[in-house]
Structures are given as C-alpha cells and as structure tokens.
Design a binder for these strands. Structure first.
Lengths: 352, 352
DNA sequence: ATGAAAGCGCTAACAC
DNA sequence: GTGTTAGCGCTTTCAT
C-alpha cells in the first residue's frame, strides 16, 4: 500500500498505553476526561501522550461513535460573496461549540442552466450531501436549495440527518430554516423606486424554482400592482441565474429591445452588478438614465464608486443562527420545524 | 448513545452480503471492481446493493486504508473572493480526479492583527490543518501562509503529509508551490504609474511576513528606485493586513498626514478597494487627484463604475495546478519540490 | 480504579 | 471464484 510506505505511522492510543504500561481503555478514559482513572494516572498518561505527540484518530473515533463532530456546509457557488459571509458566521459559531465546519463547493449546474432542465444540478448536490453523510457528518447546512432538491431534503429527514436550510428554502418540506422576509424586502425596493419617481421598472429575478427568488418576484410585482403598475419586461425575461453573467446578458437583451425603462429591480446583488456592467457597456448613466437595485447587500455591493442600492440582510447572523438551530437537532431535539425570519433593511445608495 | 437512537442504522456491507447470501469480501470485490468474483455474481451483488440503498462508509474505508480520498483546502479568509476563485478551480480539478475537496475557513488571527504578535494565528492554522490530517485527508492545499507558519510546513514534511502552497509561500521550505512572479508584477504596476505621469506614489502592502507581500513591496520599491524615486510614505506605513478595512484605515491616515501623493500602489485588490472607499470618503477624485492600483484582479475589482487597475493572475488555474501537483505527491512522487510560476498581466483600467 | 475484549464497517491477505 | 479472518484505532460495556 502506497500509504503505509509513504506515510509515517501515526502514534496510536496503543502506543501511548504501551509506554504508560496501562491498557488503552485507561488512555481513553484519561484523555477524554471520563471517570475511571485516578487523577495521578490521568496526568501521567496525558504527559506521555503529549510527549509522544499523540493525536486521536478522528476516523477511528468516528467509526466507533458514528459521529464525526463536524458539520457540512454546502455552498452552491463559493465564489458568491454573500454566501461566504454566511459561511464565516457559521464557522465562528460552530467553533464556539467545539465543532468543525467542512465546506463544499458544489459548483456547476446548481445556479446555472435552465430552470428545470438540470437534474444534473440536483444530482450533484445530492452527491455532495451524501459524501458528507458517508463521512458521518453530524449535520448539514444547506444553501441555495431549489424546488428540485426536495427529494434530497426528504431523504435527509427520512434518514434522520439533521439539516437546516439557509436563506433559500424548499417550500412544503418540514425543515428548519433561517432567512428573511423576501416578499417584504422586494416590496420595499419597489416602493423606494416609486418614491424616487421611477415608473418603468423592469424586474430581473433569480430562478423560478427558487422559493426566495419567487417570493421576491412576487414582492416586486405585488408592490407594483399596488401602485397600478406592472413590470416593464415580460414574465419570461424575469427569470434567470443569480449571477453577474446572467444579469449582464439579460440587461443587454433588455436594453436592446428598446422598451422604455427607468429602473431595473434585481433579484439579488450579483444580478445587479451584471446590470451595472451592461449599463457601462451601453453607455447608460446610473441612476440618471436608469436606476438599478440589488438585494442581499454583500460587501462588494458598495466599494468606492460602486454604491448599489439594495436591502441589507444579517449575513453573519444567518450563519450563526443556522449553526445553533442545527445543534438543537444534533442534540436530539425533534420538535416541529423552526423557521426564523431575520430582519432586513433598505439601503438606498447611489444607483437610485 | 444519542446517535444510535436518533439515526437510523446505515445499511452496511454485511447487510448486502447477508441478503445476497455471500461473504462481505465478495461484496467488497464486486463493488470496488476488484477481481475475485464472477461477472454474474458481481451484477447480482450490485443490484442488491442498489436495491438496499447501500453506500459504503467512507469512515470505515478510511480507517482501513488510511486514506480518506479527500483533500483539504485551507482558506484564511473565505470572504476574500480571490481565494474562492482559486478554490473553485481546485474543486473542479479534484472532481476530475475523483477526489473531494473539503474546505476550511481558518478565520481570525491569520490576516488580522499585528505582524508577529499573533502566534494565535499560526496555532489556529495548525489546528485546522491537523484536524484534516486526523481525518486522514490525502493532502493539503494551503493558502495565505506566513513566515510564522514555517513550523507547520516542516511538520507536514516530517510526517509525509502531501501539501502544496498556493500563491503565497514560506521561503526556505522545500515544498511545492504555484503562484506568480510577485516582484515583476509589482514592478509593472509602478512602471505603468510612472508612464501615466505619477511621481508621488505611496505603497500600501500586505504583511511583512508574507513572502508574496514582501516580494511585491520590493518590486514596488525597486521599480521606483530604477526611476530615481522612492515611496511617498515611510516604511512602517507600508505594511498591514490584506483587507479592505486595513486599506481604508491606512489610506485615511495617509490622507490625513497631508503628504503630497498622486498615486497609491496597493499590495492587493482588497487593500485597493479600501483605499477607494477612503477616497470617496475624503472627496478625492480617482484617478484625477490620486491613482489607485491593486494586484490580483479578483472578479469584483471591475464592476460597472468600479474599474480598478490591477494585475490579473490566473486564479482558477492556480487552483487546478495546485491540485495536480498535490496529486503527484499523493501518488508517491517524492522528487524535488516544484515551484511553478504562472503568467500575470497588467490590466490598466479606470483608476489610473 | 483498571483491564480485557467486543465491535464500529470496511479491505486485503490468505485459505479453500 | 469465493469465503474466512485479521485488523485499522478507537470507545465502552463488563469483569476484576
């Protein structure tokens, strides 16, 4: 085996036991703090373990206990700063609880491609999730779930794998979730746009099968309706990926179509940045010719000359609360699903 | 045990063997594709495994083989888009090779705080690295190493844990590395600034103990010297964290000091964004009053009105190559350390 | 207070 | 071609 040759053998609990002249059970007791050894022996064993540079094998421990003492955080796109800010919060909170967070970048397929065409995305996500489970992950933090991921969530529930959804959620699944009131947030954006005199507002949302995106779209449309208006662009143009590229491409189309437009309300910040790219490309002045709004307030939404009007959400807190909710489940709480709505706030800046 | 109660028992290889009426060895052979079973039996076993929803325990596999078939990617700050773009490349490349990438956000201490004061940072990094090792990670991808992390690198070498350094590197350690020619890149920035008529150039670099930051600082200074100039700010003002906050704070100080300055050359993009924030705050026009340059070309360095002059580096490729280099080592290659210098390119944009 | 021993679920000799 | 078996390094009864 390549292994045994290339890798120096680890110091094991048995090595420690041998040197200390005790059984491995005593070593286990001593090191884990369990009762069963005298303080004196405990100290002696600790010293020897230390001396030998012993570190317990988390793999053996995991196999024995069935738990890895780690939680998995699945990121659809690690390149999206909004989610990495959530991740930072999650890691900090888990650290406080003595757990590790192992992050996976799911990649391709999820936020890309058509709305339903990509079962590949669902499959990939499920594969990554199962890999964490097969490593005996104590629980899963899921971001960016789409309707098509419902079977995965159901599987997790059936197999009693603790999981909480962050930000996005699959409707109808009895699962814990932390996020914001997307419908309200979107409404506030529209009202702000209305207040500043905009009337020809195009809507560039996320994926139709994303609950959050759908809620935002509805929030945009409803607020517009309340003012006797409707989006300046047709329904099918309103859905797409929540990426900068998609924002750019859809804005180009929108501008090329020549429909009169004085604002673009985007489903998230990334889309809005793409729209800003398109404005620059096509020579539209923001906000004079056209206003642009985002939603999320990721940190790069406001940098120097770039000052996107958006809705800020407590990113770190989402991560922290998610971890705490997950912990309840890991510890055995089997109460009804908790859905926690965190506060958001409109951030008017320079693009409106 | 909370475990066994709350979690349905997994289907094991033994379950499959029992149902198939064969030994677990045959199941193992059948499923791993090893010889030792007839095609017929193999198929039957596969079908049953499938039927039962059997998935091998990666933990048991790991304990047995000593390898987890996963690689660990340590990110100092998952919130820094430059590194997440590298991460995306690494994940893609590892996927091609049938490995998983488990990402850790090291957090606090690393890129924050003083230069040496924070041994806490080194300790935290080492802890995270060891956690991966104790999970039998096949190898480690390390980013953002500082001089103080040399002991960790030495430990990895001693214990034969394959590791490659991405972008930053600890000098003097015989370890694989992929990155760019920092000194040259910094020089090109200065020459560009000089060409556009700037003469009072302040330098806002990264940490003194970061090899890359030091090389860049030297590149800045050397290019300035070649033109008979020197940085407009004193040496001690040139070092700091590679964060937006640090850029903002140091720029404020710089501007407050009142030294005549017509350009700020930053050690990376994040610092430059902070400087841009300060310019906006203090009413400095960019580039008319002052030019600002970055280094890295992370994707958010150019968005709509934000068009930072910087040096672009092949981010995804760094991740990909890193994984490939790591693989050589995992497969047993024990040749001399490889240092791969990837191309970079000046990207003049609107801040100069 | 301490030790012996039985697994956790898998792989890899080694028998047959 | 197929089965038996001995661990991998731990935790945890159960004896002593």
């Amino acid at each position: 085996m390549v292994d045994r040759r290339s890798r120096a053998r680890r110091t094991t609990m048995n090595d420690v036991a041998r040197v200390a002249g005790v059984s491995s059970a005593s070593v286990s007791y001593a090191l884990t703090g369990a009762p069963g050894v005298s303080d004196e022996l405990r100290e002696r064993i600790r010293a020897i373990a230390n001396e030998l540079g012993y570190r317990p094998s988390l793999v053996a421990q995991g196999l024995k206990t069935g738990r890895a003492r780690s939680i998995g955080l699945l990121l659809t796109d690690i390149t999206n700063p909004f989610y990495t800010e959530i991740a930072a919060g999650a890691v900090a909170a888990a650290g406080d609880l003595g757990y590790e967070v192992l992050i996976s970048h799911v990649g391709l397929g999820q936020d890309a491609g058509g709305d339903d065409a990509d079962d590949a995305g669902a499959a990939r996500l499920a594969t990554v999730a199962r890999a964490h489970i097969d490593r005996y992950s104590s629980g899963l933090l899921l971001t960016s779930l789409l309707a098509r991921d419902q079977p995965l969530l159901a599987e997790l529930r059936r197999t009693h794998v603790p999981a909480v959804q962050l930000y996005r959620r699959v409707p109808g699944e009895p699962s814990d979730w932390v996020g914001i009131d997307d419908h309200a947030a979107a409404g506030e954006i529209i009202n702000h746009l209305l207040t500043t005199g905009r009337r020809h507002i195009a809507v560039l949302g996320g994926q139709r099968s994303s609950y959050a995106s759908a809620a935002r779209e509805a929030g945009f449309v409803d607020a517009l309706s309340a003012a006797g208006l409707q989006p300046a662009n047709p329904d099918q143009g309103r859905w797409g990926d929540i990426s900068r590229r998609s924002g750019l491409e859809r804005a180009r189309e929108l501008f090329a179509r020549g429909t009169p437009i004085d604002a673009v309300a985007c489903g998230n910040d990334l889309i809005a940045l793409g729209v800003l790219d398109a404005c620059r490309e096509d020579g539209f002045a923001v906000p004079d010719d056209v206003a642009v709004t985002g939603l999320d307030d990721m940190s790069f939404a406001s940098v120097g000359p770039l000052q996107l009007t958006t809705v800020t959400v407590p990113r770190e807190l989402i991560g922290r609360r998610g971890v705490q909710m997950l912990f309840r489940r890991i510890e055995g709480d089997s109460g009804p699903p908790v859905e926690e709505v965190l506060p958001h706030q409109l951030r008017p800046r320079d693009t409106t």
